[in-house]
Design a binder for these strands. Structure first.
Lengths: 215, 215
DNA sequence: TATTTTTGTCGAATTTGTTCTACAAAGTTG
DNA sequence: CAACTTTGTAGAACAAATTCGACAAAAATA
């Protein structure tokens, strides 16, 4: 353990909220007194740092003004494949963690976590290359045993997804059929299949689902 | 200015995220080296501290596991009427600030704000008893000159609200007319008036509005 | 490869929802 | 108080959405 904390680990703390960056900085420094810490409040800066500096751990918030950080993950892995990614998010672990593990992150931590948990996660991440909470472990097991897709939206076909997105945006049947150059009855058919697959039965439910599993 | 920062102000920093509390703590200490800082991560603790300690400033996040902190405001004012309340939230200022000013807070600050702004807000709050950003000033002026209610949902009549709620829950036209024992055409009329009043034109928009102004 | 499932597409008939108009009761305002 | 606005309520006519097939192409599976 002593060896660990003496390492000169290199971190990026990426969050659009200044106070969060400061708070996390403090914590990282407490945990790894020799750590080198970079801060970033947007995607461009994150990528910039990743290109110029060797980074061990990227601590990454989910929501940025530019959008959801899941879209960034691929790029991060391309620039620095060995960089460990820890999602540090206010989103409920139950709903979102699997999503991120599926996208290849090495740890998912809720912002509600207390100091000790965060520090433990950091240490585990550095020593073992990943940290999976008990809750997440269960979620993962569960998803495998029940065979259920993590994200039910993924069960939609291309066309269905297109239609669903437009529905969520508030497009009516006609507008959709226009946008996609299809008969309106065709749209109805898609709607029906969408509702069946997602097991909801009205737009309100669809919108709720989408707001949980925003891609 | 020097006098200000030498004051022994007493703060509560209330946020369910530990890192945010730490980050804000740091900032407050930088701004007021003699400050006395209490931290709280839930409503009960906030109230507990308010009862036992004289507090000058309550820095308050909006969302807690227990719910929206707007419900707490009344109680805070009862326990310590002189305590200044600063909302420190990730919610967009455009959408929510007025809501909170209307509920009697003394400052509204977005979590995206940078260090200098936050410090300026803190100092202004302590010296002048309130801090209103330029953006908020405009919002307030705007709301007065246009005479628009801050919360458009409040412009709905009883019946309209009933219908709107059911719509948001995903009820169809028939279901609503059944539930309220009205003709379906009547429901359509209400829908139309609701959409007009709220200036949206589909269910998706209505749902979004409701999710912003949940009462 | 033969069989089954999923996907993309549509039409006819039917169900649902909307418009537009209307009117009385209640509420507001000059 | 007279005039005007808002609210609660519908009917007739019209528009939009859904159902229930149906069918071929593509994909998955046995």
């Amino acid at each position: 353990m002593d060896e660990v904390i003496k390492r000169t680990c290199r971190f990026i703390i990426a969050d659009d909220h200044m106070v969060v960056r400061q708070g996390m900085s403090l914590l990282v420094k407490e945990t790894f007194p020799n750590a080198i810490i970079f801060q970033a409040d947007n995607f461009t800066k994150i990528k910039g740092i990743l290109i110029e500096e060797k980074i061990d751990v990227l601590i990454l918030d989910v929501s940025f003004p530019e959008g959801n950080s899941i879209s960034l993950l691929q790029e991060v892995k391309q620039i620095q494949p060995d960089c460990k990614i820890m999602i540090f998010s206010a989103l409920e672990e139950e709903v979102h963690a699997l999503h991120f593990y599926n996208a290849g992150v090495h740890a998912y931590l809720n912002k509600l976590s207390e100091e000790e948990i965060i520090q433990k996660a950091l240490v585990t991440l550095v020593t073992q290359g990943r940290f999976v909470s008990e809750l997440s472990k269960e979620l993962i097991l569960n998803s495998i045993t029940t065979g259920k897709s993590i994200n039910p939206i993924q069960s939609l076909s291309e066309r269905e997804l297109e239609v669903a997105r437009l529905m969520v945006k508030g497009f009516g049947n006609l507008e959709i059929s226009n946008a996609l150059q299809l008969q309106k009855t065709t749209i109805s058919t898609y709607k029906k299949r969408i509702f069946e697959k997602l097991q909801v039965d009205h737009l309100a439910g669809l919108i709720e689902l989408f707001s949980h599993y925003l891609d």
